[in-house]
Design a protein around this nucleic acid. Structure first.
Lengths: 272, 272
DNA sequence: TTGGTTTTGGAATGTACATTCCATGAGCCC
DNA sequence: GGGCTCATGGAATGTACATTCCAAAACCAA
């Protein structure tokens, strides 16, 4: 029956599951998806926890283990534990090892970007004053329409914010460059604007923020310095650090802040 | 009394123990020595196993844990588990901790997003195999034209990748949904596609990847699981973890990977 | 529909576990 | 050397756990 024996290591388990995945009944498939998605957690889970995470009954999780040939969940879990304990040195060691691989190599680059992003996230919470953040959320919550603008590098952030704010139920418009939307007529008192710009600051973004503010719009800026030209035209300034590796900058902290803004605005709206 | 609180991470636990070591009675010292010598094993041990390994009674191990301020062995063990996996305590505990910190407030949310993002970045380097990453860069470097596709939440990633790849000198086209660009005629052998999709997977993205591949295009996928429907149609699968806070997911790891891909492709191109 | 088969949920079970408690033992000051 | 405090071992306890089992539900083929 089991021409392949029960998988004794994670790699084999993984390939077995990818192969089986299509043929599995619903609940067992959910199990497969969970253990592949979060193998680290499985190593420590109790059946109940694993089952909850996979959104199945504990018994389904055990059935799943048995299907793969193990005597039960605990035996399958050994594979996940081995994977963790066997090869994994702690984070600093891993990082160093990667660095040694040379910054020129893709994996060295990845390590560097990851580290730099991690550090900027650590500092993010310290850098953003709670009152400032609240103020920003206030402005967005109160707004009838939220204008989002960001170009070049900041464009990705702008598209994300537009998407997230819309999903959260706030009327949002994303300003594209050169589009007809950039008409002063569109700005009304009671609106809010989220403007994002980093060094070297894009003139169009700043100009749009200035116009909006003149039209009575509350401007919330995400930028990299309190003295950035965008900050001058903003009611609330959220400052994020954007560390660079070579020519490119990490956007992690910015996205983290963006997500928070969207979710907090959504939550407030729902509550109020 | 305890000016330092109970150590919540391994580093602090370690320094606490080195400091305490000299003053400890014999059995408790044996405990300290064992957990410092073999922290990996402690993560999986039962009290009985840990006690045996330290050559003490189970009760001694628990006394030891309590001395450090934990409620018992299990609580101390969490620290060792976290170290190994980068995983935070289970979901209920985390939620509770959040509540205590005032998760409802914007600053609490920010802290949570930052933390979750930080952890997923830590695991990113471990999760992406160097060979896979190299393979992905190879495909992109060799391509005459790079197609980028991603919708909904992944759209921001797609816009960023299109921008970054263009800046780095690679001919890139961003596929917008419903646009005229989605013609099979546009795909030629020798092209590459970067497709990004996460749960719940967008059908259009997957369909486009399938079409592209049928047309001889090398498909590199960024997705959240090896069994994601997108993975089936990809030549290279880059798997990223997307931890969620409430309804929203952190994109930090994804953006980190995206930046790396762009820069590495640019660098290789410049060198070659 | 009907009968058979597979899949699922959830209560029941027995075991293994962390933790507690107390009696004994070792070290130490008077 | 007697009495005190701190350290230790190990049996006792209650809980949380993996696993089993069975009945209900869904699915499917005729």
């Amino acid at each position: 029956m089991t021409t392949d024996a029960t998988p004794q290591d994670y790699e084999r388990l993984q390939s077995r599951l990818t192969e089986l995945h299509a043929t599995l009944p619903k609940r067992l498939r959910q199990c497969a998806e969970y253990v592949l998605r979060d193998p680290d957690r499985v190593a420590f889970d109790t059946v109940a926890q694993a089952a909850a995470a996979a959104e199945v009954q504990p018994s389904a999780m055990i059935r799943f283990s048995k299907l793969l040939g193990y005597s039960g969940f605990s035996e399958m879990q050994q594979v996940f534990r081995m994977r963790l304990s066997g090869i994994w040195p702690d984070y600093p060691t891993r990082l160093e090892r990667l660095r040694a691989a040379g910054a020129e190599s893709p994996e060295g680059l990845l390590a560097e970007f990851a580290e730099v992003s991690r550090l900027s996230l650590e500092r993010l919470t310290a850098r953003i004053a709670p009152e400032t953040l609240r103020l920003a959320v206030d402005r967005l919550t109160g707004a009838r329409l939220i204008h989002v603008v960001g170009l070049r590098r900041a464009y990705a952030v702008a598209t994300y914010l537009a998407y997230a704010l819309q999903r959260v139920g706030r009327p949002t418009v994303l300003h594209e460059t050169g589009g007809a939307l950039e008409q002063t007529a569109l700005f009304n008192p009671g609106d809010a604007m989220l403007a994002i710009s980093f060094q070297p600051y894009t003139g169009q973004t700043i100009a749009l923020a200035e116009t909006a503010r003149a039209g009575g719009v509350a401007v919330v800026a995400i930028t990299d310095s309190a003295v950035s030209p965008l900050a001058k035209h903003a009611d609330v300034v959220l400052e994020v650090e954007e560390p660079d590796v070579g020519a490119f900058r990490s956007l992690s902290a910015t996205f983290c802040l963006a997500t928070t803004l969207a979710v907090a605005t959504g939550a407030r709206q729902a509550a109020g």
